[in-house]
């Protein structure tokens, strides 16, 4: 598994995009994900990890709870994995609990993501590799 991005919860996408621009990050397009009920924008800067800004799209978004408690802050790290099911099973044996089952994510070309939590790590997102998605699509 390899670090893919750091997720930052924000209540105001535009303000965060502008603030990260001051630190040299360039913003991509804003993507709406109806399944996760969030708006997303990836920020990139040469040599730095990708930042994923995550903004609740409506009151039902779980990211709203995080913002209410902590305000704008990094709240998950995402790791790309070759096989989602194998990695979930491996981590489950080490006291990671599956908070959100695998779901296709618009922001990643419908590659599936899931969220797991471990007391000593916090919240992590697993993103299946593009190769894994291609294998599943092959008849």
């Amino acid at each position: 598994m390899r670090l893919h991005h750091i997720g930052v919860a924000t209540a105001n996408l535009r303000e965060s995009i502008d603030a990260y621009a001051v630190m040299g990050f360039a913003a991509g397009e804003v993507i709406h994900d109806p399944l996760q009920k969030v708006d997303i924008c990836f920020l990139e800067k040469d040599g730095d990890p990708v930042i994923e800004l995550v903004c609740p799209a409506n009151a039902a978004s779980p990211v709203g709870n995080i913002l209410r408690k902590n305000g704008t802050m990094p709240y998950h790290t995402c790791y790309e994995v070759k096989n989602l099911e194998v990695e979930i099973a491996r981590l489950r044996a080490f006291k990671f609990v599956t908070a959100v089952r695998p779901l296709p994510a618009v922001a990643f070309g419908m590659r599936r993501v899931c969220f797991l939590y471990n007391k000593a790590v916090g919240l992590i997102e697993l993103l299946e590799s593009a190769e894994c998605l291609a294998e599943q699509s092959t008849p």
Binding site: P62, N65, I66, K69, R92, K95, V97, T98, A99, V100, R101, Y117, N118, K119
Partner: peptide, 26 residues
Amino acid sequence: WDSVMHLNLVLALEEAFGALFTPEDI
């Protein structure tokens, strides 16, 4: 008992009862 504490509670219950809960259980 917020969302993070809820996940800590689920982990503690898994350990106490030797169970693995699903996201739906949670």
